[in-house]
Structure formats: structure tokens, C-alpha cells
Write a protein that binds this DNA or RNA. Structure first.
Length: 478
RNA sequence: GGUCACGUCGUCUAGAGGCCUAGGACACAUGGUUUUCAUCCAUGCAAUCGCGGGUUCGAAUCCCGCCGUGACUACCA
């Protein structure tokens, strides 16, 4: 049984840089018919942000990364908030004290800083084990508890990074329990992973250098060593730093509000640092689950590139429309229509969507791209007169062309797309104008938008009366 | 300073000694599809595989050294 976990700290929203450490555990668990646990690591009260847990849960749900155990859904290892598991950590801590592998450390922080500074000045590595207090007191609340390192070499296998080795110089007397009684990450995650039966510990590479400490903790507690998986960082668009909030890493929620589909987000992030060796670019969640494997996770960092995310989003918008129909895509567009659309019914909006969908990069593009389907555009003669195809014509020529077009279209018996196209084609012949000229004129007069779908489709959706009325009022204004 | 990791087109990547005059995708450029914008299609641009040595008939792939970059070095996670 494969059991993975995602263990975020509730210190704010989940951004692009850290969702991936939820995606890979999810995929691995699903692939192996195992479980993913969601555990909230809220032992740092100073950094705790109210509402962050809800934000995390919401993000995971949106992406479809459902957890099998954790907050909301419960499970056999409750509670899933570390702040509520203090007693368990203390129990483990006492085992360590009993076996002589932990000691209370009353040394004040200022003193520790002094030691550290001294080592820095002497250009020597700072190892607290060289400064252990001579006679540590009995452990009691209010005093930090430290691990007593017994340094030695370690060899282990990281499922992504490969064969690893570290000498004894990396192991130190790390803090297990803080002054406030809460455990540190270093201690709490070891205890929880063991208690919860986690088989694959997946986390960012930043923990790689602490691994020897974790390994000796497993030994000291006589716990089985889980499989260790280090995930490379996602890098900021510029520089070589890992992507973080300071680089303006957007929250996943922000992308959702901008009209990025969960499918595209998942697809993009999963393929940043992983690929299945084929040339496929578009993957559904199901395909990802089927194809995922740890040995194909990249071991170097990957730079975040929003352009490709947006491209993928356009692909997904079209894919959903083509494979699942307008209704499926329409269901995602609820919050993305312009103000002007609010009194229109679903049927009309679906018609608009079905002629405009293939030029959307994000769903929020609907707001700027569809306004003229819902209300008469403001007449902007400059846009017409200065258009690159129209500027060579005089105003009266344009007026006449427009009138001729109105006449032709008014006579039309049916306002369906084929009749409209036929009429437009005839107009081309009758006026002896190029498509770019005549059609630009009608298109702009109808929409005053920089671009729009094919003319016949647009007119068909807008309807006969409104189309003709708009053309007439432009003809009068010239 | 110490420890560890990483290093193929601008970006994401394929690549397990000969299939590599290094493949795909994004981006960019050009052209095509009876209007614009977008889609779609085609073409092009783009990596002497971080550098230097070795091993080999043959190396992006194996070995060594160097360089560069990053992470960790908290009573943060």
C-alpha cells in the first residue's frame, strides 16, 4: 500500500511554487491505488494565518486533488492538525530521553548566537553538539529539548535524486521540542509519518541536506525508514531562485479567478519537472495518474513559464468544447461574462460562447471580447476611418458602401449563417471590394471591437434587427 | 566557511556509448486558410549538450578535475 502525504503550513495561500508537492503525492497514490493524507503543520504559532487552512483545502479541491485522510474527511489517524497532536510528540520525546538520545537544553538563545558567531569568525562549521551543556537539567515545560546526535555516515536512496551519501559532519543536535512545547518540523514530521503509515515522504529538495538527521532520528526511535523523495524546485521566471511569494508567485486561486482551468493548471504543473518520455503535451488527470512514475521526475529545477500555462489553457478550453460540448465549457464560465450579459439567458450566452471560444486564452477574456453581443457598442468613428484597410476610402464612399450593405441584408429572407455568407459574397462582387475592405467595415460598424468572430456568425447571433439597427446608426453618423 | 544537489535551444524537455549533421513543445519570425483577431497548417530561427582532460574505433551519454548555480547550515517549515 502506498501512502503519501501533503503537509503544508497554514501560513497563507498555496502558490504555483508549492502546489506541485501536492500534485506528485496525489498522482503517486492514485497510480498505486493508495492513499494521500493531508496534514496541516501548524506548529509555528507566529506564522499561523487565519483562514489559510481553508484556502489550502479549497485549492486542492479545485484542482481535483482529493485527499483520503485529513481535515474534513477524517480518518483513522486523527487529528490531522499538528497543533492537536502535542501529546503524541511528547510521548516520543520521552522515549528519546529514556534512551539517552535527547536532553533538555536551557542555554539562552543569545548564548547560542555567540557560539554560532564564533564559529563563523573562525570559518568553522557551527555544530551545536560541540557546545552541549555539561549537566543538562531534567526536561520540563519551558525548556527546549534537543536530540543527542551520534554522528556517523549514511547511505540512502532518494527516489528522484538517486544514490545518496553523507558523512557524519552533517548531523547535529537539532531541536525536537521548542520552548513553547510545540515540536519542530524536524521532529513532528518524523513522528507523524510513522504514526500515519506514510510510505513515501515527498517534499522539496531543500530538505535533502537535513536527511541524515532524519535518518538518525528514525534509528533512535526504532522506526522504519520510509522511501524518501526529493522534488526539485520551481524557479522564478528570472534569476535562479526558487519561485516564492516574493517573486510575485501568484496563488493558485488567482489563476482560477483569471479564468485558468484546473485541468490546464494541473497539466502544466505536472509536466514541469516530469514527462513520460513521449511527445504528448496535453494530459488529463486520468492520463497523468496512469503515466506517472517517480523515476521520470526531473532532478533539476524547472523555470516557471506563464506563457506555456496560458497556451495550455487555450488548448484545454478548445478540448473541453470539442469533446464535451458547449454546455460543459459554459458551465465553467459563470463568473467571467461582462456586466452587460447579466440579463441574457443561458441559451444566448451559449451561442456567443460557441462562436468565440476558440479565441479565448483564459475564460476572463470573455469580459473584453463579448461585450458587443449584449449591448450596443459606442460608435468610435476613428476606429473605422483609421482602420488599415479602410483609411484609403473617403467618408462618403464608406457611407455608400454601408448603405448598399444594409439594403442587401435587409432584403435577406433568412438570417441563417449560410444565407448571410451568401449575401456577403454577393456584396463583394457587387461592390467590387476586397473582403478585407468590405468585411472590415461591416465588422467594425457592428462591434467596434478590435476583433470578432466571422461576420456571418456574429450577425447571426446578434440577430437581424439589432444588426441592421447598428449598421444604420453608423451610416447616419458618418 | 562547511555539507549536499543540480548544469542539453531564450523556456519546458527527449536522450541509458553508435538510431544525434541532438528530437518534440512554448515563445519568436515568415507564409497559407475569402475579412480582423485568434485557431489551425506549413516553413524558418534556435543548444559545438557548463568547461577541460581521459576511457573507447566511436561519448550529450562512462571516469576525473574545474567552473557556474542553487539549497541547507533557525526554538521556520
Amino acid at each position: 500500500m502506498v501512502i503519501t502525504r501533503f503537509a503544508p503550513s497554514p501560513t497563507g495561500y498555496i502558490h504555483i511554487g508549492n502546489v506541485r508537492s501536492a500534485i506528485y503525492p496525489y498522482l503517486l497514490a492514485q497510480k498505486n491505488h493508495g492513499k494521500m493524507i493531508l496534514r496541516i503543520e501548524d506548529t509555528d504559532r507566529a506564522r499561523y494565518v487565519d483562514g489559510a487552512t481553508e484556502l489550502i483545502e479549497d485549492t486542492l479541491e479545485w484542482l481535483g486533488l482529493n485527499w483520503d485522510e485529513g481535515p474534513i474527511v477524517g480518518g483513522p489517524h486523527e487529528p490531522y492538525f499538528q497543533s492537536e497532536r502535542k501529546a503524541i510528540y511528547h510521548e516520543y520525546a520521552r522515549k528519546l530521553i529514556a534512551s539517552g538520545r535527547a536532553y533538555a537544553d536551557p542555554t539562552p538563545p543569545e548564548k547560542i548566537d555567540e557560539y554560532r558567531k564564533k564559529c563563523q569568525d573562525e570559518k568553522k562549521p557551527f555544530l551545536y553538539r560541540n557546545f552541549r551543556p555539561k549537566k543538562p537539567p531534567e526536561w520540563e515545560p519551558g525548556i527546549p529539548l534537543r536530540f543527542k546526535a551520534e554522528p556517523k555516515s549514511y547511505d540512502w536512496t532518494d527516489e528522484v535524486m538517486g544514490e545518496m551519501h553523507a558523512g557524519p559532519e552533517t548531523e547535529d543536535d537539532i531541536i525536537l521540542i521548542k520552548k513553547d512545547g510545540f515540536p519542530t518540523y524536524n521532529f513532528a514530521h518524523i513522528v507523524d509519518d510513522a504514526e500515519m503509515g506514510v510510505t513515501h515522504v515527498m517534499r522539496g529538495v531543500e530538505y535533502l541536506s537535513s536527511t541524515p538527521n532524519y535518518l538518525s532520528l528514525y534509528e533512535a526511535l526504532n522506526l522504519p525508514r520510509p522511501k524518501l523523495v526529493s522534488l526539485p524546485h520551481i524557479l522564478a521566471p528570472t534569476g535562479n531562485k526558487k519561485l516564492g511569494k516574493r517573486d510575485g508567485a501568484k496563488s493558485v486561486t488567482e489563476y482560477r479567478e483569471d479564468g485558468v482551468l484546473a485541468e490546464a493548471m494541473l497539466n502544466y504543473l505536472a509536466c514541469l519537472g516530469w514527462n513520460d518520455g513521449t511527445e504528448q503535451e496535453i494530459y488529463s488527470k486520468e492520463e497523468l495518474i496512469e503515466r506517472f512514475s517517480l523515476d521520470r521526475v526531473q532532478n533539476s529545477g524547472a523555470r516557471y513559464d506563464e506563457t506555456k500555462l496560458l497556451w495550455l489553457n487555450g488548448q484545454w478550453i478548445r478540448k473541453i468544447f470539442d469533446e464535451q460540448g458547449v454546455e460543459a465549457l459554459y458551465a465553467r464560465t459563470e463568473n467571467f461574462w461582462p456586466e452587460s450579459a447579466k440579463n441574457y439567458d443561458d441559451k444566448y450566452k451559449m451561442k456567443v460562447l460557441s462562436i468565440i471560444y476558440d479565441r479565448l486564452k483564459t475564460l476572463s477574456d470573455l469580459r473584453e471580447m463579448t461585450d458587443y453581443f449584449f449591448k450596443d457598442p459606442e460608435i468610435d468613428l476613428d476606429m473605422l476611418l483609421k482602420n488599415k484597410f479602410l483609411k484609403k476610402f473617403s467618408e462618403s464612399e464608406l457611407e455608400n458602401l454601408l448603405k448598399q450593405s444594409i439594403k442587401k441584408l435587409s432584403d435577406l429572407e433568412n438570417w441563417d449563417v449560410d444565407s448571410l455568407q451568401a449575401a456577403l459574397n454577393e456584396l463583394l462582387v457587387e461592390t467590387d471590394k476586397k473582403p478585407a475592405e468590405l468585411f472590415s467595415l461591416i465588422r467594425i460598424a457592428l462591434s467596434f471591437a478590435p476583433f470578432s468572430p466571422a461576420l456571418n456568425l456574429t450577425m447571426n447571433v446578434i440577430g437581424r434587427d439589432i444588426s441592421l439597427a447598428r449598421l444604420n446608426s453608423v451610416a447616419r453618423s458618418i
